[in-house]
Design a protein around this nucleic acid. Structure first.
Lengths: 215, 215
DNA sequence: GCGTCCGGCACACAACTGTTTACTGAACCC
DNA sequence: GGGTTCAGTAAACAGTTGTGTGCCGGACGC
């Protein structure tokens, strides 16, 4: 039961959105640690002092952007992994979902990719935590496949991390493709599919002891 | 036949080094796009204007740092891949080499990791080019294994990229471990070894058509 | 209807930024 | 030894930055 938001709350939320959007937009061409508070407020059309009504810091705004960027991705991946069980089909679907997500939210992806190892500690930590939850979730989903019988929690976790790493790489490769900086989008998709296939194959032949079995 | 460098050339080279080192040091706590020219010269102890005797830009200095950071890595990996042929042994050696490299040049690794998707286009491009050469080299080396018989150039390339991606991820994970931000160093090594094992397994069971073979 | 809350404003502050200019003085070449 | 080259300097430039203060005015709760 949520109380109806007042006119004031609505307006406040609206400028908050504007600040987030403006920040995200400006981050196309620089990184968070060089993004100025005044720069943001100028883009929104409000006075610098008004910024403090919404965020303590620019890095505070950054942390808010992390949740926003990665929050909606969970659902996308969950459905991608549960709807299909056959490997090839699942891989195609997953890569397609990533491509679609990048097309829909390019700035968010760019933000995460560049700030994941960026200069602002608070944001870095927030992203790491989110991706961690993410890897755990993927591991949980993959644990339900028949192929995962007998896998230790540790190995499953490793598998989840491998998937997440790969997805992040793929997403940022799609992004570069979209802005003409790297190989074309289809090439990225092709490579991503085969990388996932490689991982899938390794997974099928994994032995719980971790030894590499003979062919 | 190289001419002996004059006293002046020597001194110039020395301050250039100082600029690069100072820049790298300052990048521990921020990203390149927010690194100030004056900040660097102040750290070195020269006047701001003197900076222009060595670099056009701060991003120009960044590009110089890319070569420096990634140049010496080639040799490390080449030896790591050629000295051993047996999978398990090779993987141990490779992960160990990465760990040692990170321990030896932590700032360089941090620089590459954070600027790879950072805000400065020129640097981003330089890193991408270097990693590209890198992936090609790994592919070339892996092509010589017996396991690679019948692999297409395209598949080999994909394999090389997978290796490089994994190595970059591992290196930056080691880095975070070293500064106490993520899981411990041994955990990282353990995960990295198993990820490489996973890839190795996939590689063994790869079929040229790209189909996933039955167990 | 009235007092309070509070998002946004204008203004001021000191500190900082990249870049240009004309210069000094030591190492250089012949 | 004398003229030239050139890394580094000092000073000035116009803009920029984050943050603090006091105030306004419309929406709010009662």
């Amino acid at each position: 039961m949520s109380t109806t938001p007042s006119q004031r709350d609505l307006q406040k939320a609206r400028t908050r959105r504007a600040l987030l959007d403006a920040g995200l937009g400006l981050l196309k061409e620089q990184s968070l640690s060089s993004l100025g508070l005044r720069e943001i407020t100028r883009a929104v059309g409000i006075s610098p002092a008004a910024f403090y009504r919404h965020f303590r810091d620019v890095s505070d705004l950054g942390v808010a952007l992390v949740e926003e960027s990665l929050g909606s991705l969970h659902e996308v991946i969950r459905s991608g992994l549960t709807e299909h069980t056959e490997d090839a089909e699942r891989i195609d679907h997953l890569v397609g979902a990533i491509a679609a997500y990048v097309r829909a939210h390019p700035e968010h992806i760019r933000f995460v990719a560049s700030e994941r190892h960026g200069g602002v500690a608070a944001v870095r930590t927030a992203i790491a935590a989110e991706l961690d939850r993410f890897a755990a979730e993927v591991a949980r989903l993959l644990a339900e496949d028949e192929v995962s019988r007998g896998w230790s929690a540790e190995d499953l976790r490793m598998l989840g991390e491998t998937y997440v790493d790969n997805m992040v790489m793929t997403a940022s490769a799609f992004l570069e493709a979209a802005q003409g900086e790297g190989p074309a989008s289809e090439t990225v998709a092709h490579t991503a599919r085969r990388q996932l296939r490689l991982i899938s194959l390794g997974r099928r032949h994994w032995t719980t002891s971790g030894q590499i079995s003979d062919a």
